[in-house]
């Protein structure tokens, strides 16, 4: 795999000279973005299927065998729908908002490693970059809510902004524990740090179990997914920040939400579940390429996301804030101290 890549790179360099670098980068970006978009499409189908199954239904099954062409049909439908811009809306910002939501969701993928050295950019401050990018997603939502010139949209935007800002702190502290354990902010190094003879037991979700839970739950809140979907809250504020959006502009919000979900799943697998490492470093398991393991772990996390949505009722807004500020932040602070103390003792095995 690596040899093949190097060979391709060599040929390209000989062929194009200095122009090769941008071409190579664009190729790498496409290799990541296109599968993400496809995954998003099929994640929507998976969501409807999984939730349907949990509600003893069978979900979409009319378009194509087992409903496999449903995302295509949805996409075409959204593409041909009219984009309605409400009167009194701020046109430029109204159109810019969906783009501003999607861009950070995709940009964060730049530092996500899929295998040893397989990342668009092997940045040293990768973890910080991820935090910064995920915190930018809120702008699209706020601007969408404000530019729509609608009460419900504005309420949804305020709710979501407050929620994202609050949960980001807990999320950040959970990540602080990870980088204390791994002593690096490079995502590739974080995965390497989890490699040990103990296999599965060497991953950070064992010593940092509370942080793993906090990160996962904050991740659900951060992506505005059920049970933390107060920003949409269809029973209270219709659809929140994207009430006024239709057609492709709505589709972009949709894409961003799911791309964020996949991103959170990838980050959780990388930081707590050993990324591309196999659960045990023994013969049949370590033959399988690392990419497969990463995707398998991501699928499990994504399934959890859907499972949560099928199980839990929506949090009330004040309870959501309470959970973020009064439970998660103290818990993470305590655990930062615990990990710090633990690392000074000989009982720290990671």
């Amino acid at each position: 795999m690596m040899e093949l890549l190097q060979a391709v790179q060599q040929i390209g360099q000989d062929l194009l000279g200095p122009a090769w670098l941008p071409v190579w980068t664009v190729a790498k970006i496409l290799v990541i973005v296109v599968p993400i978009m496809l995954t998003v499409a099929y994640l929507t189908l998976a969501e409807r299927k999984v939730i349907g199954f949990m509600q003893i239904r069978i979900g979409p099954n009319r378009v194509g065998p087992y409903g496999l062409l449903q995302p295509l049909a949805d996409g075409v439908k959204l593409l041909f729908k009219e984009i309605i811009i409400p009167t009194g809306a701020n046109k430029a910002l109204f159109v810019a908002a969906p783009v501003l939501t999607l861009v950070p969701a995709l940009a964060a993928w730049a530092v996500v490693p899929f295998d040893v050295g397989m990342a668009v950019s092997n940045a040293n401050a990768g973890l910080l970059y991820i935090l910064a990018m995920t915190s930018l997603g809120v702008y699209g939502i706020i601007i969408a809510g404000w530019a729509s010139n609608s009460k419900y949209a504005f309420l949804g935007a305020l709710r979501s902004a407050a929620q994202i800002v609050s949960y980001e702190i807990a999320m950040g502290f959970a990540l602080v524990c990870v980088l204390m354990a791994s002593q690096s902010m490079n995502l590739g190094d974080i995965v390497q740090g989890q490699q040990s003879k103990a296999g599965l037991f060497g991953w950070y979700f064992i010593p940092l179990f509370p942080m793993f839970l906090v990160y996962l739950i904050s991740g659900v809140a951060e992506t505005n997914r059920a049970p933390f979907d107060v920003a949409e809250g269809e029973s209270e504020i219709v659809a929140g920040f994207h009430v006024e959006y239709s057609g492709m502009t709505f589709a972009l919000f949709f894409l961003a939400e799911y791309a964020n979900m996949i991103l959170i799943a990838a980050l959780t697998s990388i930081m707590f579940l050993g990324g591309w490492l196999p659960p045990f470093d023994v013969a049949p398991l370590n033959m399988i390429p690392g990419l497969f393991w990463l995707l398998a772990k991501m699928s499990v996390i994504l399934f959890l996301f859907l499972w949560f949505r099928a199980t839990f009722p929506r949090y009330r807004y004040d309870q959501l804030m309470r959970l973020g500020w009064k439970v998660f932040i103290p818990l993470t602070l305590v655990w930062v101290a615990v990990v710090g103390a633990w690392m000074q003792t000989p009982f720290w095995l990671w």
């Binding site: 949990m54 003893i56 239904r57």
Partner: peptide, 11 residues
């Protein structure tokens, strides 16, 4: 909900 995931569908 996990149990119902495997239940016979009544659709």
């Amino acid at each position: 909900t996990g149990r119902y995931f495997f239940a016979r569908k009544i659709t």
